[in-house]
Design a protein around this nucleic acid. Sequence first.
DNA 1: CGTTATCAGTTGCGTTTGTAACTATTGAAT
DNA 2: ATTCAATAGTTACAAACGCAACTGATAACG
Lengths: 147, 147
Amino acid sequence: MSALKLEEFLPFRLVRAADAVSLDFAHIYKQKHGLSRPEWRVLANLAELRRATATEIGLRSAMHKTKVSRAVFELERRKWLNRRTDGSDRRVEWLELTKLGEAQFAGLAALARDFEKRLLAALGAGATRALLLTLRKLESIRLSSNC
Amino acid sequence: MSALKLEEFLPFRLVRAADAVSLDFAHIYKQKHGLSRPEWRVLANLAELRRATATEIGLRSAMHKTKVSRAVFELERRKWLNRRTDGSDRRVEWLELTKLGEAQFAGLAALARDFEKRLLAALGAGATRALLLTLRKLESIRLSSNC
DNA sequence: CGTTATCAGTTGCGTTTGTAACTATTGAAT
DNA sequence: ATTCAATAGTTACAAACGCAACTGATAACG
């Protein structure tokens, strides 16, 4: 009657798969550098953007601003990034990696690309492309009526 | 050099999409019944299995046993489920939904199926099937060397 | 201008989480 | 039989989290 097949229910399956894969990868940056996931994300975003604000990073990676704030604080403490207040709007702080931060990231990025390569090999190029497309579609849909 | 395109990096994309979809759905059971995600999961598993142990539920939904333990406690407090110690192995506790629990679940399951239907409509049947298959493949792969 | 709203980012605080240690029970080994 | 390992589940504690309230700064509007 009220049957709901959990194994075919996307919210459930997505979270379980995402947890599995991301925990698997998290093992790399946690083990090797003691980074948390928010810290890894800030690092990766900053490596890609060269220069960004905390808000920007939060938007791109769907992280709460307090998470970003704390991750930035920790990376700054490690001297992996530095912040500079914007000249024309002193609310804004521009973040960028230090030489040290870039170097640390380079090592991690190599591991990430390797991980990526193995995923691609396991799934196949077509399925991977299709997956990325489907994920984008999923993100663009807002189904329940939460504001 | 050390470029890593985050938007094409699966661990990142999977988590972000899963967060979006599951938060979207979580809105339903949080708003309507004040359930947490672990609680919802225990409820759904139990509705499907009719009878299960906490360990079993933890395995099926990849939840830490303390999470399951606390969710079970809360659902028992609400009298949505009851536990009975196994006759031949008194370590094991069999869980099952009460009439109340089943009734509450029935309402939620209807909303879940509706949510599911809208997802299916948005993605298409083929893409949905492909997604589920790909997710299964992802879960079966263990890439990094974490034991 | 002066008031009010808005925005970037931080911090206080209660809640949720995972780790590790614990209880209780059963199975295995000598 | 006695000891040791393994298992189901709970609990204590510290870390991580999100919300709401805050500071400081700019923009918008009368």
